[in-house]
C-alpha cells in the first residue's frame, strides 16, 4: 500500500519549473497496477521520484507499507530505494560503457547491501530471455535499438525483485507495436513478482490495461 497525503514539493525558490503538489489522499493498493496520467510537465515524474525517495518531500506524508519515507534521511531513503523500488527511467539511464548484461546487474555492483551471486546472474539472463534481448546481452547500449535498451532498463528495474515498480513514460520512445509489448511485459512481471506497478504516462491508449487510473492534474494545486 502506498499512501500520499498533503505532499508538497518545490524545486527551489525562483526555479523555472516550480510547482507544488498539495494532493488529497492518494492510495495505491499493493499488487495493483496504476496509471498516472496527465500532460507533460505536470509533475508526474516528480511524484515518482518522491515515492522512490530520490527527491525529498517538503511537506506531507508518504507512507509505503509501514515506512514513512518523508521522515527518512538521505542514506535511509537510498537503502529503502534499493530494497523496495525498481525504477524504469524515461531516458533508460543505461551506462554506455557497460554491456546490457552488466547494466542489468549494475544495482548489485553499486550497492554494498546487495550481493552479486551466481543466482542473480542466472536471473538476469532469464529475465533478458523473457524480454527478448537474450541474444544481445553482451552488446553495449549504442549497439542496440531503443526498444532493446528499454527492455534492458526494465530488466535492471526488476533484477532486485522489488515490491514496487515505478516506470516513467516507459513507452514514450517506442513505436505502437513495441508500446503494448513493453507494457504487457511490465504488467506481467509486476503480477509475477506480486509488485505494485505505477506507470506515469500521457498515452491514453494504454489505460484500459491498468487496474487504476489516476489523473494527476486533478490531485495537485499549483
Amino acid at each position: 500500500m502506498i499512501q500520499l497525503s498533503s505532499v508538497e514539493f518545490q524545486y527551489g525558490e525562483g526555479h523555472a519549473g516550480d510547482f507544488k503538489i498539495a494532493s488529497a489522499d492518494l492510495e495505491i493498493p499493493s499488487t495493483q497496477s496504476t496509471a498516472l496520467i496527465g500532460p507533460s510537465g505536470c509533475g508526474k515524474t516528480t511524484l515518482l521520484h518522491l515515492i522512490a525517495g530520490i527527491l525529498p518531500a517538503r511537506n506531507g506524508q508518504i507512507l509505503i507499507d509501514d515506512t514513512r519515507i518523508d521522515q527518512l534521511n538521505d542514506r535511509q531513503r537510498r537503502l529503502f530505494r534499493i530494497s523496495k523500488i525498481g525504477f524504469v527511467f524515461q531516458d533508460f539511464a543505461l551506462l554506455d560503457y557497460l554491456n546490457l548484461f552488466d547494466n542489468i546487474l549494475h544495482p548489485y555492483r553499486i550497492n554494498a547491501s546487495l550481493s552479486l551471486t551466481r543466482e542473480v546472474k542466472d536471473r538476469a539472463r532469464s529475465l533478458a530471455e523473457q524480454m527478448g534481448i537474450g541474444e544481445k546481452l553482451y552488446r553495449h547500449p549504442a549497439q542496440t535499438s531503443q526498444g532493446e535498451q528499454q527492455r534492458a532498463a526494465i530488466c535492471r528495474a526488476l533484477i532486485t525483485q522489488p515490491s514496487i515498480i515505478l516506470a516513467d513514460e516507459p513507452t514514450g520512445n517506442l513505436d505502437p507495436s513495441n508500446k503494448s509489448a513493453i507494457l504487457d511485459i511490465l504488467l506481467d512481471q509486476a503480477k509475477q513478482n506480486q509488485a505494485s506497478l505505477i506507470v506515469a504516462t500521457h498515452d491514453h491508449d494504454l489505460l484500459p490495461s491498468f487496474d487504476q487510473v489516476v489523473d494527476f492534474p486533478k490531485l495537485i494545486t499549483s
Binding site: 530520490i54 542514506r75 537510498r78 530505494r81 527511467f89 539511464a93 551506462l95 553499486i110 550497492n111
Partner: peptide, 14 residues
Amino acid sequence: ELTTIFRLGCGRLT
C-alpha cells in the same frame, strides 16, 4: 552518468 547511479541507489562514498 553519476546522477543515474545515484538514482539507482549508489552512495557518494561508492
